[in-house]
């Protein structure tokens, strides 16, 4: 079995794994970081979105072995010193969630979005969140939250 080593939320982790282990499963089962959700398992819904070397990717569509040597950030790695990340805070403030299942993926995608579009308009936010599905259809407040977070972080 191949050995993978990666940095997850600032901490180096290493394990011998079956090559078919998906990165999403490695994070949830091996590392017990269950904030990353698996919604559809068919690469469509984006609930499993995490950052790999800073880029939003669907962790259910990447093998854990492909992340060997990578820098991974999950929803659990966003808060600093007990303070929520501005994107998390904005989702809370604007009620950017209903059932909450898609939320971790939405937040991770939104962070990648604001990194590339520091001052996004509504159309850009909606277009860029194309890869994340909210089955409650609570998009309106999600878009508001992303806009507010972008404004708050000096976009």
């Amino acid at each position: 079995m191949p050995t993978v080593t990666m940095t997850v939320n600032g901490k180096q982790v290493s394990a011998d794994i079956d090559p078919r282990t998906l990165l999403a499963d490695f994070i949830r089962v091996n590392l017990d970081l269950t904030g990353t959700h698996i919604g559809c398992d068919t690469s469509q819904c984006g609930a499993c979105t995490i950052l790999v070397n800073g880029d939003a990717v669907k962790s259910c569509t990447m093998l854990a072995v492909q992340a060997d040597g990578a820098e991974v950030t999950t929803i659990e790695g966003l808060a600093e010193n007990g303070e929520m990340h501005p994107m998390q805070a904005a989702f809370k403030e604007h009620h950017g969630l209903q059932c909450g299942f898609c939320t971790p993926g939405m937040v991770m995608s939104a962070i990648d979005l604001v990194k590339r579009h520091p001052n996004p308009d509504e159309a850009t936010i909606r277009e860029e969140l194309d890869g994340n599905i909210c089955r409650c259809t609570g998009y309106h407040n999600i878009v508001k939250a992303v806009k507010a977070a972008a404004d708050a972080t000096g976009g």
Binding site: A56, V57, M62, S109, G131
Partner: peptide
């Protein structure tokens, strides 16, 4: 695709 797909 979408942003995540384009990243990979």
């Amino acid at each position: 695709g979408d942003r995540q797909v384009r990243n990979r």
